[in-house]
Computed example of a mutant assay.
Amino acid sequence: MIYKRGSEKDIIRILVSLDQNYLFRFQVLLTSIAVNNPQEKMEIYLMHSDIPEEKLESVKKQCASFDYGFFSIAVDSAIFSNAPETKRYPQEMYYRLLAAHLLPQDLKRILYLDPDIIVINDLRPLWETEMQGNLFAAASHTGLTELANNVNRLRLGTDSDYYNSGVLLIDLEACRKEIIPEEVITFSTTRRMSLVLPDQDILNAMFGHRILPLDDSIWNYDARKYNSYLARSSGKTDINWIFSHTVILHFCGRAKPWKSRYPYRFGLLYKHYEQLTRRWLENLE
């Protein structure tokens, strides 16, 4: 069966951008979404520059088994040929910033998720968030330490919080009108020596004043910071609270739960979804 894009207003549309090294992480994310949003209709958009079609077959089968629409968007890598990138931060990290110009033009909004995320509760409240005229909705992790917030404001010359780009609700219609791709590319190339986290720095420096703040403890929980969240909330956000309220767990930073000696809480939870994914994929073969 060939999936045709739906026109129903209740479809949640998810965007990811990655290279083929992160394909299985993407599939773990998909499993977590399906397990915890069992009644939802989803369309999944993958933006990439060079993933061979045969490498996507497993993803296509997985999405079909969930009854999700899947759309592969190949991006011309030449567009970002001069933009700063590293092994840790490949070119694909920029695609979310220009998603409005790279995705089908009739899409009105999309929810971007990094592939080092698992979803453990209902995404619909986020999907239906009123954007209040903003281009993006995002969460800041720097509320955990105001010092980091102040450093980033000084570094980028901004007066807003420093928002994490791993979870972005994007108003595509507004972005098409206001974001000029050439300006984003020019900014990335002329400021390349001062960009620490390139896509995130660009998001904050250029569009920080057009971002709707989200509660990170619910919508972009930094999985490294359990004790910080607990202290900030005076003990409210304990494990029971997290499993009842947090929707998106983000495994930020260099340490990842699929690597050996992962030192932070929630590593075993990630392993659970990793194992579910392997079993699911084995059953599809």
Rank of each mutant, 00 (worst) to 15 (best):
residue 204 N to Q: 03
residue 136 F to C: 02
residue 236 K to Y: 07
residue 131 M to N: 03
residue 239 I to C: 10
residue 15 L to V: 04
residue 115 P to A: 11
residue 114 D to S: 05
residue 34 A to G: 12
residue 194 S to T: 13
residue 39 Q to D: 09
residue 117 I to C: 14
residue 169 L to P: 00
residue 36 N to A: 08
residue 74 A to Q: 11
residue 3 Y to W: 12
residue 63 C to L: 05
residue 17 S to K: 04
residue 258 W to C: 06
residue 168 L to R: 08
residue 7 S to K: 07
residue 280 W to E: 08
residue 257 P to K: 02
residue 174 A to F: 06
residue 44 I to C: 10
residue 220 N to Q: 04
residue 188 S to A: 15
residue 97 L to R: 07
residue 121 N to G: 08
residue 207 F to M: 12
residue 241 W to N: 07
residue 26 F to D: 06
residue 280 W to L: 15
residue 70 F to A: 00
residue 105 Q to L: 07
residue 139 A to I: 03
residue 133 G to Q: 01
residue 224 R to W: 07
residue 249 L to F: 12
residue 123 L to R: 09
residue 153 R to C: 02
residue 161 D to H: 09
residue 184 V to C: 02
residue 37 N to M: 11
residue 215 D to E: 13
residue 208 G to K: 05
residue 242 I to Y: 01
residue 163 Y to M: 00
residue 154 L to H: 10
residue 113 L to V: 08
residue 104 P to K: 06
residue 216 D to A: 09
residue 21 N to W: 08
residue 11 I to N: 01
residue 175 C to G: 05
residue 234 S to A: 13
residue 125 P to T: 05
residue 91 Q to R: 14
residue 172 L to G: 03
residue 12 I to V: 14
residue 27 Q to H: 06
residue 107 L to N: 08
residue 191 R to M: 11
residue 82 N to W: 10
residue 90 P to F: 07
residue 179 I to L: 05
residue 257 P to E: 00
residue 69 G to L: 01
residue 70 F to G: 00
residue 256 K to N: 05
residue 59 V to P: 06
residue 216 D to R: 02
residue 54 E to K: 11
